[in-house]
């Protein structure tokens, strides 16, 4: 039971926690107050509660594949938000610094960053959080396994939180231009991960055709191992990915790359 709780909680929290730590690290650069992250987290938890509460009704939608549809929708929305976020990041990369009356550094274009960040976190937590809530809710009445479940959840949550703290400080302490680059690369991987998961959901709902697995690396890194979960959370590792998943993964990275290019060009052109 314990191991099971660990894996389930880890699977769901790691992704969100790593995403939040990357956004926090970018926020340091953009001078955005961390309070907005909590805004996103609160909204996400609320969303998760609503989703978990209505999961039964949602499942009935669209001939029994409503869940897949909603999940895919959330994931696509997250991928698009990240793409837009990266676009704005590049758009204002070369922006000259502005100061307010008190001499503090301000970016006049913080609004879209804050909004997109809240969207990414809230949408991500809605999907991941609903599963955790259902899991914990299902166990709450059985007192027999409460301790092992609580311990397992605690350990899973602890591993997720610790990894994200280490990632945050690693990102903040990277010297020079690589700090920005690594954050962007991680965000792009998240977007791609979301796109590939969305493709999987749509395959499961039979909205996308089934394609054979391109490779099988389960003997190398099992999806059940801690490393497998970590890789899954960071870049969407799958031991047996289907062609359509790999395709959407690559497509999302290309899309992010294009967004970055466009942002960069606008940024170079509009420097005043």
């Amino acid at each position: 039971m314990l191991l099971n709780s660990v894996i389930l909680i880890l699977q769901e929290t790691l992704e969100a926690a790593l995403m939040i730590s990357v956004l926090l690290a970018v926020n340091v650069r953009l001078q955005i107050k961390p309070i907005w992250i909590f805004c996103g987290v609160t909204l996400g938890i609320m969303g998760a509660c609503i989703y978990a509460y209505h999961i039964e009704a949602v499942s009935e939608w669209l001939d029994g594949v409503g869940q897949e549809f909603i999940n895919a929708l959330l994931q696509i929305a997250i991928a698009l938000c990240i793409t837009l976020y990266i676009y704005w990041l590049f758009r204002f990369k070369g922006q000259t610094k502005q100061y307010d009356l008190d001499g503090r550094l301000v970016y006049s274009n913080q609004v879209q960053f804050v909004l997109l960040m809240i969207c990414i976190i809230a949408l991500g937590l809605t999907r991941e959080g609903a599963e955790v809530l259902l899991y914990l809710g299902g166990f709450f009445p059985s007192s027999e396994q409460r301790f092992s479940m609580a311990a397992g959840s605690g350990i899973g949550f602890g591993i997720g939180l610790s990894s994200s703290i280490i990632l945050y400080y690693a990102l903040v302490n990277i010297p020079g231009p690589w700090r920005f680059r690594s954050a962007v690369i991680l965000l792009a991987l998240f977007a791609a991960n979301m796109a590939s998961q969305a493709a999987l959901q749509l395959t499961q709902a039979d909205w996308l055709p089934h394609t054979q697995a391109l490779w099988d690396s389960s003997s190398l890194i099992s999806e059940r191992s801690v490393l497998g979960h970590l890789f899954y959370a960071i870049f969407g590792y799958e031991a047996t990915p289907s062609a359509i998943q790999v395709g959407s993964y690559v497509a999302a990275i290309v899309l992010v790359g294009i967004a970055a290019k466009i942002g960069n060009r606008f940024s170079a052109g509009s420097k005043i």
């Binding site: 869940q67 395959t203 499961q204 999806e223 799958e238 998943q245």
Partner: peptide, 10 residues
């Protein structure tokens, strides 16, 4: 993991 399927059933 082998089928790449995941679905919550309440």
């Amino acid at each position: 993991y082998e089928l790449n399927r995941e679905k919550v059933i309440s």
